Simulated assay, not measured.
Amino acid sequence: MTRKFWKRTEPLDHAELARLLPAPSDPRMTPDRQLLFEEHLLNEIRTPAPKATARPVRRALLITVPVTAAALAGVLALGALTPGTGPNGEPASVEAAVVPIEAGSTVQLVSTVQRIATAATKQPTPEPKPGQYIYVKSEVSYQSSSHNADTGEEKTWVQPLHPREIWKSPDGLKGWLDEPGYQDEGGVPLGQDAPGSKPVNGKDIPGKAPSHLSYDWLKAQPTNPDALLKSIYATAGNTRDRDQRAFQEIKSIVNEQLVPARTAAALYRAAAKIPGVVVVENSEDATGRAGLALARVDERYGERTELVFDRTTFAYLGSRGVQVTEYDGVKPGTVTERTAILERAVVDARKTRPTTHGTA
């Protein structure tokens, strides 16, 4: 039997029946786990998270929206779901791949980042105008897990690789996400138009959605790597591991944002200045494109986040998460997430796709 999390909601007139039956299980998050989910939500409040997780979600950064108490409660109610199940009937999960763990090194870090930054400055980037949207198409897969209540066996599962399309306004206040099988049919609005994005009581964060990490925010940032890194750290907030949070923010930016060329070059140079960042010589994105990676291990959870670049052109391909030390039943070498960026473009309206292929 595989455990599912649920809550008891019997009316009072069923009290007699309740006394005759075993009490239903009501698994609770530990205080540490609840704090982790709260921290994740407040620092990475985006679109709905993957439907099942037993660890902090390394979801792609989306458009920041104000937090409502209801939204926070919804996230904290998430539990581990059986593979192949979910409230929206998403496709069946598959067992996570396991890869050899290659040690990273700082020996080639400076020269590698120099090549990546040089390539970024040569990458043409269209300029979005007010009213237009930044479009990013990718293939993604994220982690879930299952726990067998009878045997105590833990298994890590991942979503099958599937398409994901996102539209963002330059100011970061509006957008759309289409992820068939994992969001509502046809997609969901983001930013100010997203359900639950408006504060409903005095305890919620007031005002409009902040636009940090939007295109406009990026365009206004300094192109000096040290100054830019300072701004990235400021977005990380007072988290337990600000270095890891900053690296995750950079990954989120390059995954689903259009970054001006000079800013992109500074962003990669800034990433190399974060303590713990190394070069991994052999990695690959979600579609199997091989490359090298800038990577950093989350020391608390033992997961390494890898930003994958083409070995010849040094163009950004996508990201990968690999467990390097066992944590919460997830074995070393387990691939916990995969993304591949297929296209970036500027379009005139959300839900509109480019008529010609943009850049990747």
Rank of each mutant, 00 (worst) to 15 (best):
I205G: 02
L35F: 01
V308L: 05
H14M: 02
L76W: 10
S231K: 15
K7L: 13
W6V: 08
E95Y: 03
E343W: 04
Q183M: 10
V254P: 09
P206R: 06
V278A: 02
V278L: 05
K7C: 10
G202L: 15
E299T: 09
G187E: 03
T352I: 08
D226N: 14
L72I: 04
A286L: 05
I116G: 02
S145Q: 15
A272Q: 08
A272M: 07
E185K: 12
V140S: 02
G89Q: 10
G358A: 04
Q192V: 07
N148G: 03
K219V: 11
M29E: 12
P126R: 11
R164Q: 05
Q221I: 10
P170G: 15
M1Q: 07
A60E: 04
R300D: 07
V140K: 02
E139D: 13
E249R: 11
S141T: 00
N282S: 11
K219Q: 15
V99C: 00
L21V: 04
E179G: 08
V57M: 13
D171V: 12
V99R: 05
D241W: 11
T287N: 13
P275Q: 04
D348M: 07
Q323R: 15
E10K: 02
D178G: 00
G131N: 03
N238G: 11
I341L: 14
K219D: 09
T85A: 02
A194G: 09
W167Q: 06
L294K: 01
G181T: 08
V259M: 06
A265D: 00
P199S: 14
A119N: 01
I166V: 15
T85W: 08
S25T: 12
F314Y: 10
T235K: 04
T53R: 04
D226M: 07
N88P: 00
E139R: 06
L12A: 10
E281I: 04
N282A: 07
T336Y: 06
T235L: 01
T223S: 14
R269F: 06
A96S: 08
N201Y: 03
D243S: 10
K251D: 00
P56C: 01
P160F: 09
E337M: 14
T2S: 06
T106N: 01
A15V: 05
R46G: 13
G358Y: 04
T156K: 01
S138K: 10
A119C: 01
Y316M: 05
V297Y: 05
E90M: 03
S319F: 09
V347W: 03
R304D: 04
F5A: 08
I232G: 06
G181Q: 10
A293Y: 00
P199V: 15
T339V: 12
T339H: 07
E343P: 12
E165V: 10
D298G: 06
Q114V: 02
P126C: 02
A80G: 09
D328Q: 14
A271K: 07
L109K: 01
D285G: 03
P87H: 09
E337H: 15
W217D: 15
G291C: 04
N43E: 03
L35Q: 13
E284S: 08
P225V: 15
